[in-house]
Design a protein around this nucleic acid. Structure first.
Length: 143
DNA sequence: GCCAACGTTGGC
DNA sequence: GCCAACGTTGGC
């Protein structure tokens, strides 16, 4: 009988325009609440996030590349920047900066990632990833 | 700056 | 409940 309980770690990709909030600012802050989500699907993804979940940090618009990995350190609570209680944030902290960034072009050109939410639903700002997709992107950053 | 892909709003 | 009009995101 196995008495160990293995937490299920989920994987995500979160987008930020570096002009608004960049990875380097994130590293300076050491943690932040992920605010400004005003889309139901993205909100639902935030609600699913658990402590210890890992998020790829993607720079949209400028850069268009994955730059680091963040870890969820506090589960969802109402977005302090919203007037409406229905919008949520989670707290995240930087876990690891990628040795090399992984560009959208690289992701698009990798056949193993052809079904990734980042491409399928380009406008969604909080995207669920499979463990495989997450690991493939990390491996691309090692090249 | 343009535009595709969505999401939201509001008239009916 | 449908759909046209409009707004937003984000790649190009």
């Amino acid at each position: 009988m196995n008495l160990f309980i293995f937490a299920t770690v989920n994987h995500w990709l979160i987008k930020s325009e570096p002009f608004k909030y960049s990875w380097s600012q994130f590293e300076k802050d050491q943690s932040t609440f992920w605010d400004g989500v005003r889309n139901y699907q993205a909100r639902n993804n935030l609600r699913e996030m658990k402590i210890g979940d890992l998020c790829l940090f993607y720079h949209s618009n400028e850069g268009k590349e994955v730059v680091g990995v963040a870890e969820v350190i506090k589960e969802h609570y109402p977005d302090p920047t919203a007037d409406d209680e229905q919008w949520l944030v989670v707290d995240v902290k930087p876990k690891m900066k990628l040795r090399n960034t992984v560009t959208l072009a690289q992701i698009k050109s990798d056949s193993r990632l052809s079904n990734i939410g980042l491409i399928r639903q380009g406008r969604l700002s909080v995207i669920k990833l499979s463990k495989e997709e997450f690991n493939i992107i990390l491996s691309l950053s090692e090249n």
